[in-house]
């Protein structure tokens, strides 16, 4: 499949930071106790929804005029789903737009907190676990052909090992005694690896799989289906995000065309967890006596990709991702990290590019200056601050503003994505209809990704042409079955005609 639809879904953690009790009035302390990721969350997430509704931004329920969706998920986590995108660049722009939108809502919720006399400050963290061991996801969606789904096991070794460039890094809660010795890192490369228990699973909040098999009809584009990948970490780095989405799409394209033999891990879930703590370790694979490291497995996929694209046409974006992949694996080959977690040699400058390496570099800098151990709560606190979306208090955001991390898209693309949908998917129709209907005497209902309904608040004249066709005098339903369809002037004309009619009433 040379044309593909992509999208991501990011859950964020809300963190209510209170001033010390001595700085609070006596009446407030009783209700708002303890700085927390898990207390007061329902109220805090409700404030975000209030802030969104107060923005006068075109909305239809949870859907926005940029085609994306913002809502509060299980556990009171705010979640942003990007609109359907047709390029990796669009996915990056729209995921980062989601980050900006959430941060904007947090800032506006701060104003509502002041009005309600709620002390403290609200923060949104884009990561995958809180200090109490709860996890929340960063999910990826790829439109794939039935042929790829039949052979989906071929992507598993790739997904297990891509954490060496896509991991966000974390200081683990507890270091199991067995996790020590040569090659073991004092930190984990992946945030989500500890929470995955199966290769395939239809569960999302427990017994998680690398791939989620729960069927949700979000596409009826031919026979193509959605591949829902849930083992990934949330990326702050645009570079790591581009690699994660771009390389996964390359591997899917090869699987659809016939990838050939790929060595499968004998114990895939264990390999996923151990690679996170010991990325240079060797793991048993079928048919290879000596086993493979994560880097070797990635190199096998890269070699296949280089061979594949020597005989298949590649888009400009695919060529760029291929080049990035090759450069990054070379950088990882030459990256030297001491057993105490100090980066000794980084000729590929991965500490500007990959989240887990950037974070290791930052935490080491703080450890050395303050003579702190990896388990010190100050260091754990900085680990979380890396993911804070607030430009005033977020560690990654500060690195970005100082020019200490590499970017792969222009800021203008992110600002545009906050307002406008991608131009070449059905998100354009959804966003266009939401925008056109905003401020009119109608209610717009987007019950799913495939359709949108406009209901007139006042009864519309039953004699206009549309009403006769649909035998409905106060509603219009637009089906968005084809995710590739970004241009449907006939549909938009019908919508405008209906809205004009509503305005006449």
């Amino acid at each position: 499949m040379e044309e593909r639809i992509f999208g991501t879904e990011c859950e964020y953690a809300l963190f209510h930071q209170l001033p010390p009790p001595s700085a609070q009035g006596s009446g407030k302390t009783a209700k708002w106790s303890g700085t927390s990721f898990s207390e007061n969350l329902q109220e805090m997430s409700h404030l975000l929804v209030c802030a969104l509704r107060g923005q006068n931004r075109p909305l239809a329920g949870e859907f926005l005029a940029n085609g994306g969706r913002f809502y509060i998920d299980r556990g009171s986590h705010p979640e942003y789903a990007t609109p359907e995108c047709r390029s990796v660049a669009d996915v990056i722009a729209h995921e980062k737009a989601g980050d900006r939108l959430v941060q904007k809502l947090v800032e506006e919720a701060g104003g509502l907190m002041a009005e309600k006399d709620i002390p403290g400050r609200l923060h949104a963290f884009k990561n995958n676990h809180d200090p109490r061991g709860n996890t929340y996801g960063s999910h990826e969606n790829y439109l794939v052909s039935p042929r790829a789904m039949e052979k989906i096991q071929q992507i598993i070794p790739f997904l297990i090992t891509r954490q060496i460039f896509a991991g966000a890094g974390k200081i683990p809660h507890l270091a199991p005694p067995a996790f020590s010795g040569e090659d073991w890192l004092p930190f984990a490369v992946s945030q989500r690896a500890d929470f995955v228990e199966h290769v395939l699973s239809d569960r999302a909040s427990d017994a998680r799989g690398i791939i989620n098999t729960r069927k949700r009809e979000i596409t009826r584009s031919g026979d193509n289906v959605r591949l829902h990948v849930i083992l990934g970490d949330s990326n702050m780095s645009e570079y790591a995000l581009k690699l994660k989405i771009g390389t996964t799409a390359l591997v899917l394209r090869m699987i659809e065309d016939g990838l050939g033999d790929i060595p499968a891990f004998l114990q895939p879930v264990q390999a996923l967890k151990v690679i996170s703590r010991r990325p240079a370790g060797v793991h048993a694979v079928e048919g290879a006596g000596s086993g493979h490291t994560a880097l070797e497995v990635q190199s096998i996929y890269l070699e296949k990709a280089l061979g594949y694209f020597s005989s298949h046409a590649a888009t400009g974006e695919e060529k760029a991702v291929l080049c990035l992949w090759e450069t990054t694996l070379s950088g990882l080959k030459n990256l030297r990290i001491s057993p105490s977690g100090v980066i000794e040699d980084d000729p590929g400058e991965l500490s500007r590019k990959l989240d887990w390496v950037i974070k290791a570099w930052l935490l080491n800098r703080a450890r050395e200056k303050k003579n702190l151990d990896w388990s010190d709560p100050h260091i754990k606190h900085l680990d979380f601050r890396y993911h804070d979306l607030d430009p005033e208090t977020g560690l990654f955001e500060r690195c970005a503003s100082l020019g200490l991390v590499d970017r792969v898209i222009e800021e203008e693309a992110i600002l545009l994505a906050m307002e406008a949908p991608p131009h070449n998917t059905r998100a354009r129709l959804r966003g266009g209809i939401i925008g056109e209907a905003w401020g009119k005497d109608v209610e717009v209902l987007v019950e799913n990704w495939e359709s949108i309904r406009i209901i007139a608040k006042s009864k519309v004249d039953g004699m206009h042409p549309f009403a006769r066709q649909r035998r409905s005098v106060n509603g219009l339903k637009a089906n968005l079955n084809d995710p590739f369809e970004g241009c449907n002037e006939a549909l938009l004309k019908r919508v405008r005609r209906f809205l004009d009619k509503c305005d006449e009433v």
Partner: peptide, 28 residues
Amino acid sequence: DKKKQLQQLDNFIEGVLQEALEEFKQVE
């Protein structure tokens, strides 16, 4: 220049550390 950037980063980290921990100790 790089030196100035790193100095600004160190100042920022210092500020974050000073501003702060029970939440991060409980796990132990």
